[in-house]
Design a protein around this nucleic acid. Structure first.
Lengths: 285, 285
DNA sequence: TTTTACACGAAAATAATTTTCGTAGCCACA
DNA sequence: TGTGGCTACGAAAATTATTTTCGTGTAAAA
């Protein structure tokens, strides 16, 4: 909720009836108000220009124009509540591009917004101390698992991931105390991933889930829950926004790891790149 | 840099001297301008109210008040527009999360900003008609290739991708006229990917590159160039923002394909999900 | 019932913005 | 150099927006 709306509420008790209705109107249609003149607002809200002017004085908003300005700035900070856009028939390229951008931006900022720092902290601690790290996921989530896998390998952490569900369970059954297993599934209801994570837990590993927000089998099972925003429901099976959010979370984990053990990991990172180059060169390219 | 400043620059060439100085003043002191009346601004900028009013008309900003409003909104949005942040030692978790968010948001919107609709159009046409689609990429870009691969398979397009470089070239050598090959590499200098794409081209396939903006070997080779924003330079080897941008581009391609052949592809998408469910059920889960 | 206080809008006053209009400078062509 | 067309520009007029003043009506206090 924006500052102005709060300011309005704070003044509620000292308000006259007309001012109340005015405040209500503004709080309800801020995006309209910014485009109105004082006379228009007077009509629409059933008051008079004089009342509005007085009202704005009382708010220390610097007159009606000042109020509009404040509204404008605050509306800007809470970008147009664009909702996730679905794939539809025959959209123009421009609108597809715009929709995709809006979805991805939204997905990432929503996920950041609902991030639980405590769980993040626990996950990082677990990852740092883990003797071995297993990553589970199928289809799109499998690619997310692989992404994290590549990153962990680059800093020399013992990570494992398998796209084959049987191998996932097999690997899980070899875990024990001191190991960490991360199950990735947007819905949190993917049987293969659930199986693998349950198996890991039964064998004593610390389990982490990365799912959409809200109750689901996978996060119910896990010791630590990480969540991504769950607004993609109804999207036409793209998995697009959710995968962005998952990767965003992976990046946060990775950056957290590297940043907290900077001296240990950064040289390894650099080295892993140098090595690839070096061996290419030696082969003569 | 904000939209208005960009708009100002876009109009520079059609500006009169006074308008120039006005534009310069606004670009330099936007935060002052929002608090000024048109007369004040006229004085400060050494012009007249009439000129300013005309100027705002030309900008399609809805008059001077409209311009102020836009400035206000954009100044409000400024904070998140931070530049790409590098991984550094011992950052607090909060700042890591904030940096990661800023990087990803930036990467996606920058990439959208510099998107060339013509190349996109050509790529979509090529993909729709392609007899066969090969995707090349190694390491992180390999995962992007796989991501697209999964999507294409879901809508029944004949796509191929291999993480093994030998297999990539082998596959490329089997292409011919009417086939499409997409090479993915952030730097555009990955030898394995270049080899594969060159081979594809030599065999008559239409070649598409997905690289950072700017000259590089891969896009020099390709018939169609797609670009992602190249601002990650200097980042500590995360490949994080660039992979987000690449996936963003993939999603645009995919959504474009699906949207333009809605009736054909959407049922296939739905079906691919139903089938996975069905076969799970039949196995008793 | 009268008085007092105050919310409220009509209208006046003020301020801000836009439009009109005339001047000055500039270039093209005689 | 003169003439005519053109444009940029600001002064002032016209329009529009905002604030202030002032008077009415209403409702509580005396």
């Amino acid at each position: 909720m924006s500052d102005i709306v709060r300011a309005l509420q704070a003044h509620m008790d000292t308000m006259n009836p007309k001012e109340m209705s005015l405040a209500a109107f503004i709080a309800e249609h801020p995006q309209l108000v910014v485009r109105m003149s004082i006379t228009e607002l007077a009509e629409q809200s059933g008051t008079s220009a004089a009342t509005i002017s007085r009202f704005c004085k009382g708010l220390h908003a610097g007159g009606f124009t000042g109020l509009k300005m404040q509204l404008a700035t605050e509306l800007a900070q809470q970008p147009p509540a664009t909702s996730y856009q679905d794939i539809v028939a025959g959209n123009s390229l421009e609108s597809i591009v715009a929709a995709m951008e809006a979805n991805h931006l939204r997905s990432i900022s929503d996920t950041t917004r609902m991030l639980d720092l405590k769980q993040l902290r626990r996950t990082l601690d677990a990852l740092r101390q883990a003797r071995r790290i297993d990553l589970y996921g199928v289809a799109t989530s499998g690619l997310v698992a692989q992404d994290f896998y590549q990153k962990l390998i680059r800093i020399g952490r013992p990570a494992f991931t398998f796209s084959d569900p049987h191998m996932q369970v097999t690997s899980a059954s070899n875990l024990s105390d001191g190991d960490v297993a991360i199950g990735i599934s947007y819905s949190g209801e993917t049987p293969e991933t659930i199986d693998a994570l349950r198996c890991a837990k039964e064998n004593g590993a610390l389990t982490v889930s990365l799912t959409k927000f809200g109750p689901n089998a996978l996060s119910g099972l896990a010791d630590i829950q990480l969540h991504i925003s769950s607004l993609e429901e109804g999207m036409r099976r793209g998995d697009m926004a959710s995968r962005m959010a998952q990767l965003h979370m992976i990046d946060i984990l990775f950056m957290g790891l590297v940043s907290e053990s900077f001296d240990e990991y950064v040289p390894k990172l650099e080295q892993s790149y140098q090595m690839v180059r070096k061996y290419r060169k030696e082969r003569g390219r």
